[in-house]
Design a protein around this nucleic acid. Structure first.
Lengths: 209, 209
DNA sequence: GTCTATACTCCGATAGAC
DNA sequence: GTCTATCGGAGTATAGAC
């Protein structure tokens, strides 16, 4: 995995995907460029095109990897959250915030419009699995219908994405809020969106601690 | 300002700001360019630089206008929402979604990192007024502290921004969901985040109706 | 498989004519 | 105040050497 002598990488393809996450985390999708990824790896700007026909195909591979990793993070967070279905779904919001803070590859990347026309079965499969996982978590909370389960997933993702955007756009002062702080706030907010207001609700306002 | 002659605009400065919103709505901040704004107005790519020293200063003026318009929309939506403080704050989320869908200038533009170093008193004043308005709405819901009011504003904006991003990134199928549909969902979700779960809560899951 | 070199496009910004 | 013309830089992508 290290930079090698001469000019060769052991596995430039994998290295390109990995480095793409770093570029995304630092620059965002807006300023993502194949050239920047190549620079980061110390290879020429032409080298990536031996492994991906164009920028979109690289991004598609990144999207697939991001969906796979995010799904794993969501599952892990849900299992850590315990048995309550709403807690488990809300935990997915926290996993999302932390994942995007770390990798820079959120829904903007995973569902980037420019990838929609691309035929990439691996990516399709990973994004489908991610959505299935989220829908399963939502269904477990006992919505009245499949439609409602979809709305619950939407709400959860919207909360997570909202806090993520606020954080990455610098709306929070970076010094005051770590990614984990923001993730905790997202979980709290998601939990409230998902909570049928009846028994055992203790919070009066949105709080971190 | 000046008279119209030949290719001239009466007020190119104002026209540039207005056209910037259209470019933002179509391309997003990522692909926003001074050149595209000029093209849209049928003027040369050099013309904007007679009115703004550089791209950042144009964006700063756009940011100020966006903050002013968004604040007006928030106030109007709150007044329409009636007397309940939580309803009024939740209505701000809907106003935000509709505003961004229409103008393309959300927090990513209003609080764009590249504008932070710029000294633009007009913009500062408008963004400050917007935040004050939101904090006033939050304070009216009776948070335990100023800190909590800030957190309520954050939660409201996060929900609104989340639904907005999901919509603009094509996560919803455009055919199934209009901007107003999405705004309604955002209001519903925001209302639940803001609701202390005690009396009179009827919704079991997130619904539009 | 990676390099160098290059063609092309787009953008930001400036200079000078009118 | 706007135009034409132009420079410099960055990015995508290709061609051909090794």
């Amino acid at each position: 995995m290290s930079a090698n002598r001469g000019y060769h990488h052991g596995d430039l393809r994998a290295a390109l995907i990995s480095a793409s996450f770093e570029v995304l985390a630092e620059c965002g999708l807006q300023r993502f460029s194949v050239a920047a990824v190549a620079r980061r790896l110390g290879v020429s700007s032409a080298a990536p095109y031996r492994h991906f026909p164009d920028r979109s195909h690289l991004l598609s591979a990144v999207s697939a990897a991001a969906a796979r990793d995010l799904r794993a993070a969501v599952i892990a967070a849900a299992d850590e959250a315990g048995g309550d279905p709403a807690d488990r779904l809300a935990a997915a919001a926290g996993a999302y915030v932390r994942h995007v803070a770390r990798t820079g590859a959120g829904l903007q990347v995973i569902y980037a419009p420019e990838l929609y026309t691309l035929a990439d079965d691996a990516r399709r499969e990973h994004t489908r699995a991610l959505m299935t996982t989220l829908l399963d978590l939502a269904t477990a909370t006992g919505p009245a219908s499949y439609q409602d389960a979809v709305l619950l997933v939407e709400a959860t993702i919207a909360v997570a994405q909202g806090y993520t955007t606020l954080w990455s756009d610098g709306f929070f002062s970076r010094n005051d809020s770590s990614a984990d702080d923001v993730a905790a706030r997202a979980v709290q907010a998601a939990r409230m969106v998902l909570t049928p207001p009846e028994t055992g609700c203790s919070n009066q306002t949105v709080r971190i601690d």
